[in-house]
Design a protein around this nucleic acid. Structure first.
Lengths: 201, 201
DNA sequence: CATAAAATATACCAATCGGTATATTTTATG
DNA sequence: CATAAAATATACCGATTGGTATATTTTATG
């Protein structure tokens, strides 16, 4: 019988899922192979049978964590009708950043990976950079469609708005996590809301 | 003769200065004692004679890097006349973030330390949190003085503006560093400028 | 310039690091 | 149910980790 996932594929997925939070809290340098074997209750042989090395696990984990966050956003965005509402999904999601458990423990994987890897690990950096630029592109597309639908002003600087929204979110998360205050993120999200309001016709 | 600094104090300062960039690029977990001895050409005995442990070095290095950034801002702010100009110092400084070498290699120490330490090191986290809240307080004070001087609207939400400015800057730095694009930070700083313009009477 | 104290270097520690070669077990297939 | 292949476990590697006890050197002082 063809099982959907081979044993190894299942193990691989299991390793990724059980170490997802570890990498996202302790970081790449801070996570050891023994952290991985302890958490999975597997041995090194099993880990190295499914991954090339620690970096390879970290890369797969980043993709997994990133996909998880994306999924939450996309899901909510489908419910939204207007483009204004669609953009506001970001504000709403990060307004409940702490409470909701959509997010992997340790916060935003893009932020964590970007900040750790930008000077130390080119492969992880590349993934994080791609994630940021893809995110930017998605927001720009929403704005452009909103313009076409006469919802947003025709001369909106979509690139600037997209980058600023991302910066507010990621910077807001940084502040909220280090000060242990979701309220601080909420205040930043109010400015994000203002930014979105300002581009409406 | 009373020398200003004792030998040990000079060595301590030397260790802090020569490892400042290392900690800020590789992070706390990523920096090893041998990184420190290699860079300083000192031995472990000398390092441990002046610091309790690695964490103790990292804490001193954070204070040093943070003070360095603060100094640049304060210096420029003294030249500014109006409160609008004072707030714009942030925009101007981070508009040249990459070019200028005020900043320690590795980017913003507050961002780096916050993101790494918020789930792993309570002492470093505490320092970073203090730095953020002090920064926030300073911006709020500028806004309040600007209000008193009839330069800013009387009903400005100073807390929200302060947090949003910080978020834009730190989020913008994250984006710029991971995408290797100062231009991305400049676009975010344009929004910061807009934010500052909006509170004027 | 002798001497005590302070600062630095040397030599070492057990533990852990990431990684690998090989043995064992589990799985799929005829 | 035998067998080959795939997956996992065992046992090990040298290097490096953060840290310390002690020896040596440098500094300040009477």
């Amino acid at each position: 019988m063809e099982s959907k996932l081979s044993k190894a594929e299942k193990t691989r997925q299991f390793i990724i899922e059980t170490t997802a939070d570890i990498f996202n809290t302790k970081g790449y340098a801070g996570t050891s192979m023994s952290d991985i074997t302890d958490a999975t209750r597997l041995t090194k042989g099993s880990i190295y049978g499914n991954f090339e090395n620690k970096e390879d696990v970290a890369l797969a984990v980043f993709d997994h964590n990133h996909a998880r966050v994306r999924k939450v956003i996309q899901q909510r965005m489908q419910q939204a009708v207007t483009y204004h509402e669609k953009l506001m999904v970001y504000v709403q999601v990060y307004d409940h950043f702490t409470r909701l458990n959509y997010f992997p423990r340790g916060g935003c994987p893009i932020l964590n990976t970007s900040v750790e890897a930008d000077d130390t690990n080119s492969l992880l950096k590349e993934r994080a950079a791609k994630a940021v630029l893809e995110w930017k592109k998605n927001i720009q597309a929403l704005i452009q469609e909103g313009i076409a639908a006469k919802e947003f002003k025709y001369d909106v600087d979509d690139s600037r708005i997209a980058l600023s929204l991302i910066a507010l979110i990621e910077g807001g998360i940084m502040i909220a996590k280090v000060t242990d205050s979701q309220a601080n993120l909420n205040q930043v999200m109010k400015t994000a809301e203002l930014l979105i309001k300002m581009i409406r016709v």
